[in-house]
Design a protein around this nucleic acid. Structure first.
Lengths: 240, 240
DNA sequence: ACAAAAGTGTTGCTGGTACACCCATGT
DNA sequence: ACATGGGTGTACCAGCAACACTTTTGT
């Protein structure tokens, strides 16, 4: 932001914020992404990530929270910036000679709890949780953004406790295991070793309640104990 | 980027790119950051990160490479996007009522080889490698950006081979060790264990050449073998 | 001869992997 | 009774931390 002489004309930008919002359906063990249907050109009637253009007086993060709140009601969520996409021509609204306004997309990555998240349908546009594997062709470069978000999710899972932002407040250890398995793919770890390791860490507290899933012994419900996790904060903990 | 009605006026942006460029002086074991002196208002005569505003027809990355090339000549470098800062009022050029043009900063993180990097002094502005510990107050929110970049560097060092983008082409194992020690702080590992571990991984090839550093036995020069590293790519390898 | 820096080897322990096994429930 | 899913225990082995030791140089 220093030193360039204005001999070369600067580009003018509108800035969009696009959210990759994940949740997990623990009953069906599916990783879900929130998609909305565009109601305007360009890409009218195409599915896309929920996004918006940044308004006057609004920070990037404000904008990210705004669309999120327009689309779903949640009690709890995790949100962080993902990446900024700014190639010339990534948005068809840019004039073909690229001398007009450019459109930048700052993407955000969010995790919400599936059972607690109420979708807000405004009776005009479509909105839906899509299983990641069934996501169709999206508007703009949103498939790429989504892919980027998915990679981030995989990484985050391994070394930070984001899992507990996607799982319901209380959950069984199989829920947790299944979450890792659905996101990271099978055979990332043996179930019983996974149990022992996590319990030994000591930030999962047994609620005493049990829950039955069909046949078989009922499972204990656990809760994530943020207090007990504190010492691990910023440590290069690996969850595997 | 969908669905908002233009009832609320959108913000107009100029987009800046700011680079956090690190290198390491292996002789003095110092981590260095490239700073330049601003020649214009605002913050005239303040040190800041080398940056520029994005021009018409130029991608973010193009802009990042452009300033880099304006400030230093390098053969080899590592560059990746860092973070995007877009709070209202982060740049004093924004009108106080925040209804004028906003200034966004997309920051990039770069590593270059100190001995190979020639600074380009344009006889007007100052430019200098600053030891990280001695960085003064910078213009804008650049101290914050720098801090963010430093955290990224620490993380990257641990699980990816970026070290070899900062070190010279061939280096001794102490150089490598010292690099980790200066960036990550002392006592991150025992020297001899560090040696054994890295050599066992097998992607450091001995060049046969030796080099003496004062008294003591001369050290072997090693070279990073990208071929041999390939299998580790994308694996959650930890270097410690 | 001695200090300094590079490089090798040994040993004990931690913690992960791969299982085998026991427990509680539905049908 | 037995299938199903939850939960515990054990035995082996890789890999790492700690530290003692050897080698090669400069002075």
């Amino acid at each position: 932001m220093s030193g360039s002489k204005p001999r070369y004309p600067l580009a003018d930008f509108k800035v969009g914020v696009d959210n990759v919002i994940f949740s997990v359906d623990t009953d069906q063990n599916r990783l879900l992404v929130l998609l909305v249907m565009r109601q305007q050109e360009p890409y009218r009637d195409c599915w896309c990530l929920p996004g918006t253009l940044v308004r006057q007086g609004e920070s990037l993060e404000d904008a990210a929270y705004r669309i999120l709140a327009e689309k779903i009601r949640v009690k709890n969520l995790y949100l962080e910036q993902l990446y900024t996409f700014g190639e010339v021509g990534r948005d068809p609204r840019e004039a073909p000679n690229s001398y007009g306004t450019r459109y930048l997309s700052v993407s955000y990555f969010a995790l919400v709890r599936f059972p607690e998240a109420e979708l807000i349908a405004d009776r005009v546009s479509g909105i839906a949780w899509y299983p990641l594997k069934q996501v169709p062709q999206l508007a703009f470069d949103h498939n790429r953004i989504l892919e980027y978000g998915h990679r981030r999710l995989c990484n985050k899972l391994e070394y930070s406790p984001v899992a507990f932002d996607v799982l319901p407040e209380s959950f069984t250890l199989s829920d947790l295991y299944q979450l890792y398995a659905t996101v990271l793919g099978e055979n990332f770890s043996d179930y019983s070793n996974f149990r022992t390791k996590l319990l030994k860490l000591g930030f999962l507290s047994d609620t005493g309640e049990k829950v039955s899933k069909g046949a078989g012994r009922p499972a204990s419900l656990y809760r994530f104990d943020a207090e007990a996790f504190a010492p691990f904060k910023n440590k290069p903990l690996v969850f595997i």
